[in-house]
Amino acid sequence: MKTISNTEFGGERPLFASHDLHIDNVTIREGESAIKECSNIIATNCRFEGNYPFWHVHGFTIDRCYFDVGGRSALWYSDHLKMTNTKIDAPKMFREMNDIDIENVEMTDADEVFWRCKRINAKNLKLQGGTYPFMFSEDITIDGLESESKYVFQYVKNVELRNARITTKDAFWEVENVTVYDSELNGEYLGWHSRNLRLVNCHITGEQPLCYAHDLVLENCTFGPDCDRAFEYSTLQADIRGSITNIKNPTSGRIVADAIGSVTIDENIKAPADCVIETRP
């Protein structure tokens, strides 16, 4: 493997079609597509300031690197990435990618990141700012997520999420086969139009959570006092610890809680309208 270290590149495609290359302490200045159509690339202690540095790259490692704001849309149409100990200030990262393995990564502008990606494995991931992370992605495993981005996890499939703290709005819309363990989910309109969403040992806050959900499961979950009009037009099995403020027009299933503030069943409830709602003895 060839090594390039302690230097900088700029302009268009300075390392185009490189293979079996290790760059260390290299700065990619203003320009485009620095490392395009490449394979078996290792980048350590590098700084990326130019646009689109890693496009169509197959098999690469990024460790202890930094992506400046100018390094936007840096990782597209690539596969088999391992990224560790890296900070990203640029938006629109990770697009149309497969086999992403990341650990200890912080993104300060998580706008439109992880779109249409498959097989994401992440540990200790931090997302700030931006909208719609993980849109249309699938086969995702994350242990340790802190996210303040809006509209996170929409139209995703096959997700296992653990130890997360998510503050957002409209999270988990139109998802399929998603399980969330031991997490805090803060924001309005959680999980609408979901299919096979399962929440285990989670704390939920925000208005009108979990409506229009199909085959929703809650196990040992708690709700904040602002969670009103919950479960409207949902089919579910819910085990709620503590109290829930208001339940409105669930379609079918069973809800059991330690205490229920109020239940709204009106003429707009949808058939079969046979959900069992009860407090725990």
Results as ranks from 00 to 15, higher is better:
K2H: 09
I4F: 03
I4M: 07
E8I: 00
F16M: 14
D20V: 01
L21Q: 12
I23V: 15
N25L: 05
V26I: 07
V26K: 04
S33R: 06
S33G: 06
I35E: 02
I42M: 05
N45F: 12
C46H: 01
R47H: 11
T61F: 12
T61I: 15
R64Q: 13
C65G: 12
V69C: 04
G71A: 11
W76E: 08
Y77Q: 08
L81H: 08
L81R: 07
D89C: 11
M93T: 10
N104Q: 13
M107E: 06
T108Q: 03
T108P: 00
D111C: 12
D111P: 06
F114I: 07
F114L: 12
R119W: 12
I120A: 04
A122H: 09
N124M: 06
L125V: 03
G129H: 06
F134Q: 04
D139I: 12
L145C: 08
E146T: 09
Y151S: 12
Q154H: 08
Y155G: 00
V156L: 05
V159L: 14
V159K: 01
V159T: 13
E160L: 04
L161A: 06
R162M: 10
T167F: 04
K169A: 08
D170P: 00
D170F: 11
F172M: 08
E174S: 10
E176Q: 15
E176F: 04
N177Y: 10
D182W: 01
N186V: 15
N196Y: 10
H203T: 11
H203M: 09
I204S: 02
Q208I: 13
C211A: 11
L218S: 04
E219I: 15
C221N: 13
F223W: 05
D226I: 02
D228I: 13
D228H: 12
D228C: 10
E232N: 15
S234H: 02
Q237G: 09
R241P: 00
R241I: 14
R241A: 11
N246P: 00
I247M: 00
K248V: 02
G261E: 02
G261M: 08
G261I: 02
A271Q: 14
A271I: 06
A273E: 06
R280M: 09
